[in-house]
Design a protein around this nucleic acid. Sequence first.
RNA 1: GGAGAGGUGGCUGAGUGGUCGAAAGCGGCACACUGCUAAUGUGUUGUUCCAUGCAAAUGGAACCGGAGGUUCAAAUCCUCUCCUCUCCGCCA
Length: 420
Amino acid sequence: MLDIKQIRENPDYFKKGIAIKQADPNLIDRILKLDEKKRKLITESETLQAEKNKVSKQIPQLQGDEKEKVLADMKELSDKQKAQDEELKKAEEAYLDVMNQLPNPAHESVPEGEDDEDNQVARTVGEKPEFDFEPKEHWELGEALDIIDLERAAKISGSRFYYLKNELVILEMALMNYVMQKLVKKGFTPMIPPYMVREDAMYGTGFFPADKNQIYTVNPGEDDLYLIGTSEVPVTAYYAGEILEEKDLGQKFVGYSPCFRREAGTYGKDMKGILRVHQFEKVEMVFIAHPDKSWEAHEEMREIEEEVLQDLGIPYQVVNICGGDLGGSAAKKYDLEAWLPGQGKYREMTSTSNCTDFQSRRLKIRYRDADGKIHFVHTLNGTATSSRPLIAIMENYQQKDGSIVIPEVLRPLCGFDKIG
RNA sequence: GGAGAGGUGGCUGAGUGGUCGAAAGCGGCACACUGCUAAUGUGUUGUUCCAUGCAAAUGGAACCGGAGGUUCAAAUCCUCUCCUCUCCGCCA
């Protein structure tokens, strides 16, 4: 949700900002027109209401014919207002419909571009491992070591599901635990949030209506809950509808949850292995930031993500996501892509977005400043780790004999230093 | 799953159709006073939207969980819905 007042004052800024996101800049003109119409109708309706309220106050004192006459007049006014309010309601719906289509304008440092082809590699960190053998892809390693079973998962649940087995289960838990501990030491508040949420939370974080087809619905028509695709949703929505004190800003949360994604429309893409799946685990960071500090907070979050990959000894590159690949909520996003020797490509492991006040407007998360004025907070989110880095570990730490060495930092938590 | 009770301002809690944005208390803020770090007194204290204004501000509308409805008029009546609590049942 954008601020209509700011759009009124500075339409060109918004046109430019959403154009970078590949959205139609004419939407700005349309919203301004709808806004004007809506305001005109509001004024008319409220003038009528004010008149009614005035007369209403006198009614208890009136009697007899005089009262009858006034009541009849009022009835007429009410009918007139009802007709007018119909129109107002329609205008409001049309307004909201366009408003919901407007994405958060991109930050000026976001590269222009249409899709992931145009993303910019900011820098590359770490040495790619050298092998004196042909490195395998993670599913080959996983099946051979009996730590991933895709066939039986397909039998039980369909494609894009998996069984993790044996040491890989322990390794995943160790990874999650390692990262969680690290963030708690950095002052994050750990959370295990609800894995199912209401529509409001999905709308508020910007997943609805834009990405509705990516979300699983639980018992439609009965429970109408939605399985979270990321704990960003329940953790960011934590303070929905609340007004915080300025001193409460700067809070850092780290949520742990499984994530559920339909992956509709991705048939044929990454069909093998566990890179793109319907269900995975994730440790997610969420910042509730002061508007003046969200950009430095965004860099901080990126640094933490880098630190995690560095701890694990995984070579990666930092990617500045271009406008067209940004999604509705984010004003800017970095992806961290790990080098996967088996695939011979960098692939997305983690990601961090500054959503500025786009989500907080929808969720109504505000704060009161020293002067008692109320403002919207900024929200940011970022992956601390997920199941994906397991793939990077497997492929980067594979040995000639098909075994996998465990990154040093995870050994104490695993209780073994090698798989196979 | 069955049976009840309830959702009111930052909090506690009154209020069953018009003078209720809403008593009272607590808290917060401001001022006053007191030789002490707190007590007392007085005042003040919500949010959203619209209009005018550079602004301070002024005027108007809305908000008593949410959405509809009845009515000239709704915190108060009706319907639906969400949430919380208690008891029973079931259960990791």
